[in-house]
Amino acid sequence: MTPELITFIFLALIAVASGLGMLFSRNAVYSAIYLIINFVTVAVFYLLLGGAFIAVSQVAVYAGAIMVLFLFVIMLLGADRLGESKTLAWQRPLAIILAIGLIAETLFVLFFQASDLVAVQTLPEGFGSPASVGNTLFREYLLPFEVTSVLLLVAMIGAIVLTRREKTQS
């Protein structure tokens, strides 16, 4: 039991627990808060894996921007709760069985068929630092980077168009 493993198990438990919390909360606001906890935990995993820049982005973009947007919409619509419904009651157990099946399959693959995965022991200097990520991004991935900027612009316009009220009604 190395300290590393202990840390991993501890964080993994938090991650799974917060995921399940998000899943089973009646109130959407709680779900959102559980998800934020989950994202922060994952950001810590990123740090452990040598992705400093990504970890910071994760906290800033996901836990910060995106989840705030979720909370904002939940508050705006006032639809934080939904009444109990009987539709598709039979789907729930089937879905749980399938999810367990999926996990079992993945673990089977990981531990019985891909167990020879050995990590690189010596990482390059400054692996995952903002400088190296920036270098790679602007050297090798310049075009996709620019395309994502267009994607964001399109998404922005789309969001505005979708939520705009028709002026002709008033």
């Binding site: 799974v16 779900s31 619509l77 879905a95 749980i96």
Partner: peptide, 25 residues
Amino acid sequence: TYYVGLSAVLFAIGALGVLIRRNAI
């Protein structure tokens, strides 16, 4: 493999959410 296994568990939880919840958010 540990991390990937954790990733699979989280993925399954997400998928389960899509399948069993009715709230669009």
